[in-house]
Design a protein around this nucleic acid. Structure first.
Lengths: 234, 234
DNA sequence: AAAAACAATATTGTATACAATCTTATAGAA
DNA sequence: TTCTATAAGATTGTATACAATATTGTTTTT
């Protein structure tokens, strides 16, 4: 019915149709418009986004590779729903990588990198101020990603990209809101410590920061699985 | 019913058209039938494998996600050719993950896991004896993967899977042959140390083992890019 | 009434057809 | 000759059509 409307929405940044479908799906998952365990019917999604199943499938496969959705042969794709155990394992992995990034970056950031990162912090704050938590979450992730880039190991960047996606999903599933307000100051402090070459302090700040993700989650919480209908509201 | 059951049992390995294309492409790259930088023409591959471009594209996208091939928008897919710098970064990342696996697994392997791993070693040795270095390389990778599974962090497993793919590509590009013969004994020794809970020894063995990958490579070597025609020989 | 078997439907998997883009070869002008 | 413009061909991007499989609902049997 509102096929036309959703299509024009999509073409606001219509640079690359396939990437667009991927990103919209991704965002929809992170912002809980698509709840964990939701079945992702290809045809329905195709109509919602105004594209063919081909592009939907591409996006789903990519999300599958990132483990943001799980795919069952001949049965389709579902929004991933990592249990508490897996969530902790993912956060462990992220901690491992982020600490390695810290060790590479501490005291070695170029001025350009610092400025770049500073800008990312501003953008994240901006989203937070506007109450756009979805965007804020994505920008926070981008800060960490840019930091890894600045650290200079491309492999870490690639790995971290996946882990951040999954972390975002975990926060979406188990997060309780409140805990993320301090994120901005933490990013800022971390950047300072890195710039000053304060190795141990940088490590502790990163650990503390990632620890907030854990403490900000209630792993007992049971998330109800929604339906595709929620997507139309967005 | 029983037919279905046996089929799903078998699907752990392969034998789904799309997975098959992926695996064949992957193996072809690792065994240098498809040299680095080779352009992967979709139509040609489709004809070689006797499937439609659809399946070829799926496989290419998956390989792209694993960074075994690189994709250029509107220009197609090419076999990845990590330069020396990136190769070192990838090996650094792998070292990081493998060491984390060691720390989890040391002294905590179930008897079943140990037996499982022992079997993997045998299989790898078998391939080596037959001079099938491609298979041996893959089995070696599978050993490391199973070890990560036994260690109990699924996220490490997923990350390591990608890193092993890339490591294999690096070995295929820069490897000089000789260095990998000791791999079997090293896997065996490592397993023993892990089983006995010898923490430091396990760490050192793993570091030594991965170090062999580096020393077994000549990063000055320049690899000539081949063409798809080589595939027909396999 | 409950369970099993079957038919009807819906959904995913794969192949083909069409559109958009890039590459290459050719022709013309400086 | 060399450079540019352009047109023809080849290749990738996307949509649609068809095949295989799973799901659902009905009927039949116990």
């Amino acid at each position: 019915m509102s096929k036309e409307a959703s299509k024009s929405d999509a073409s606001i940044r219509a640079s690359s149709p396939n990437l667009d479908v991927y990103r919209q799906l991704f965002d929809s998952i992170l912002e809980q418009r698509l709840a964990p365990n939701t079945k992702l019917n290809e045809q329905d999604l195709a109509q919602v986004f105004g594209v063919s199943r081909t592009l939907v499938r591409q996006a789903l496969q990519r999300l599958g590779a990132e483990q943001v959705v799980v795919m069952h042969k001949n049965r389709g794709a579902f929004v991933a729903a990592p249990d508490a155990v897996l969530a902790q394992q993912i956060l462990d992995a992220r901690e491992l990588i982020e600490m390695a990034v810290i060790n590479l970056a501490c005291g070695k950031l170029s001025l350009q990198s610092v400025n770049n990162l500073q800008m990312m912090i501003e953008l994240e704050q901006e989203a937070l101020d506007q109450g756009d938590t979805g965007t804020a979450l994505r920008r926070s992730g981008e800060f960490h990603l840019r930091l890894a880039e600045a650290a200079g190991n491309q492999s870490y960047v690639h790995i971290l990209r996946g882990l951040i996606s999954q972390t975002s999903l975990i926060i979406a599933m188990y997060g309780q809101g409140g805990g993320n307000n301090c994120a901005r100051d933490e990013h800022f402090e971390l950047l300072q410590a890195l710039q000053n070459g304060q190795h141990e302090k940088s490590q502790n700040l990163m650990l503390h920061h990632l620890g907030h993700v854990r403490t900000g989650c209630d792993f007992k919480r049971r998330v109800n699985s929604g339906s595709l209908a929620n997507l139309l509201a967005g």
